[in-house]
Design a protein around this nucleic acid. Structure first.
Lengths: 127, 127
DNA sequence: TGCGGATATGCATCCGACGACATATCGCAA
DNA sequence: TTGCGATATGTCGTCGGATGCATATCCGCA
């Protein structure tokens, strides 16, 4: 089957976001914040993580505050001062959360990518 | 295993968006527009669909234009005038697109919902 | 031939997110 | 005790998208 969609397919990509929200729809933890938590944990520093991802420190710090406000307990241990200026590391709860979201995100990603390929096949008539 | 997450779980819901974008990241077709296309098809009218979903006619019409501009051909047949004022129906290409996205979205949804339940179990230690 | 209701489109304005800038605080090490 | 570098926090301008309002156009029917 020939369809008009074909000429455009090279210009399409798939994108998605998955996140946890409170009952008002306010975002709590999503792809961006999750990646940020992982990188902070890896680098041991909020500033270093922001520099790498190109986010502003100000904004990211606000996001972290939001998450912790929602849960009511810290996901990160913050250390100020010292010869290095300070550092951040994940708490046990933070580690658990990141790990669980990791697994969740990965299984969802598999299905979404596979589904996208089938979607393309379907609109091009490849079946 | 006891975790601090438990008291908060009733206040968390899952949310996600899946969409097609052009190579610049511009959104083409996502959950919202897809639902709108379905409803237009069902109602036979853009205005009726907007009223039901609470969207503004102005905005929705702009979205439709964007989609059609991207693909380069119409997804909707538009009829102006007449005793009913006018109507909209899906073209064959529109029907194909909606149907394919339907299937895609539905399989993705299954896995995402299942993954979310497992995610909750994991952070509450139910395993 | 004028009315009604929906499609089609311009425009002014509003709003919230985000970036940019400024500043305070902390604690080790020289 | 001073300097450094990172955490912590306030504020303000801006910029893109949403919202609301206004208007033009179309055509079957009474």
């Amino acid at each position: 089957m020939e369809t008009k969609f074909k000429p455009r397919l090279d210009h399409i990509k798939l994108d998605y976001k998955i996140w946890l929200a409170d009952l008002n729809g306010m975002g709590i933890l999503g792809d961006g914040k999750w990646r940020m938590l992982k990188l902070i944990s890896e680098k041991g520093s909020l500033k270093a993580a922001c520099d790498e991802l190109g986010y502003t420190y100000r904004r990211t710090w606000g996001n972290i505050k939001k998450i912790e406000e929602f849960f009511g307990f810290p996901l990160l241990e913050k250390h100020r001062g010292g010869s290095e200026g300070g550092s951040m590391t994940l708490t046990e709860e933070g580690k658990l959360l990141v790990k669980a979201f990791d697994r969740f995100h990965s299984t969802a990603d598999d299905v979404i990518q596979k589904g996208f390929r089938e979607f393309i096949d379907e609109i091009t008539g490849k079946q």
